[in-house]
């Protein structure tokens, strides 16, 4: 029981990859489409995923496309906050899949890093992804989270220089988030060979598992990525599934290359 939260996260991804399929890191905005159904949605998502990434809504999600902008606003309108999310997690029967919080920096800054590290660990949070906190500005948060063993996951992108790539990968905890493209979340990426080459470079440089994300929404993409990364992050597409009221567990299971084909995952 002495496994650090950051390691629990790496292990979950490695274990899935060892079974021959990329780990599915499933993103949902906390409290969207419905705050009262947050716990239910979280459990349903976790049942189809290896890691759940819970989005803390923010007024100015500058790295996000239309879907996550919409889900963030929808959650904020219902009063969802970091405080509320941590309280919900602390109070519920949590899923066994490790949890990661995705938040822009300002809500974390205002919460206070020391308090955040303690309360996040107590609520079963294994790591943080902070899209507007590049490696160079992250020392303070990284140090605070390290006190409770919680990971600060770093991102790399196709335009990250080779020197920076090794620097960022060696500093990343839990996993490395390899952004598949230059752009915001929510688009549909074709996963051309140049992207696969880049993902191979990241996987080679990284001591922790690599998960590819941004624009992943189909089983074909996941199948194409399986040889190159340990996991995939599925965000906007899953938010849209929840928004439509479809079953997230079944949809996530259908993303796995071994799953039987179903029409909603084609194209």
């Amino acid at each position: 029981m002495n496994v650090k939260p950051a390691e629990k996260l790496s292990m979950a991804i490695r274990d899935a990859a060892a079974r021959g399929e990329p780990a599915i890191v499933a993103f949902m905005t906390a409290g969207f489409p419905s705050a009262p159904k947050f716990r239910e949605h979280l459990l349903a998502v976790a049942a189809g995923a290896d890691v759940v990434e819970i989005g803390v809504p923010f007024t100015d999600p500058m790295a996000d496309g239309m879907t996550i902008q919409r889900s963030s606003q929808g959650a904020l309108k219902q009063g969802v906050s970091l405080r509320w999310i941590l309280a919900e997690l602390a109070a519920m029967q949590r899923p066994s899949a490790p949890l990661v919080l995705m938040s822009y920096l300002n809500p974390l800054l205002q919460y206070g890093y020391a308090k955040l590290a303690t309360e996040a660990a107590a609520a079963g949070v294994c790591g943080f992804i902070v899209p507007d906190l590049p490696f160079d500005e992250g020392a303070e948060l990284r140090t605070a989270l390290a006190k409770t063993g919680v990971a600060l996951v770093q991102m790399v992108t196709p335009v990250t220089t080779p020197e920076r790539l090794s620097l960022v990968c060696s500093a990343s905890e839990g996993f490395v988030y390899a952004v598949t493209m230059t752009g915001t979340t929510g688009k549909n990426v074709a996963v051309p060979d140049t992207v696969l080459d880049y993902l191979d470079r990241v996987s080679k440089a990284s001591p922790v598992p690599v998960c590819a994300g941004f624009g992943i929404r189909s089983r074909e993409q996941v199948a194409k990525l399986r040889e190159h990364v340990a996991g995939v992050v599925v965000g906007s597409a899953l938010v849209e599934v929840l928004e439509r009221g479809d079953d997230p567990t079944a949809w996530l299971q259908g993303l796995r290359p071994s799953a039987p084909r179903s029409p909603q995952h084609d194209g």
Partner: peptide, 9 residues
């Protein structure tokens, strides 16, 4: 400089 990693270069 608090920006997504994509903008760092």
């Amino acid at each position: 400089r608090y920006v997504p990693e994509t903008l760092i270069p």
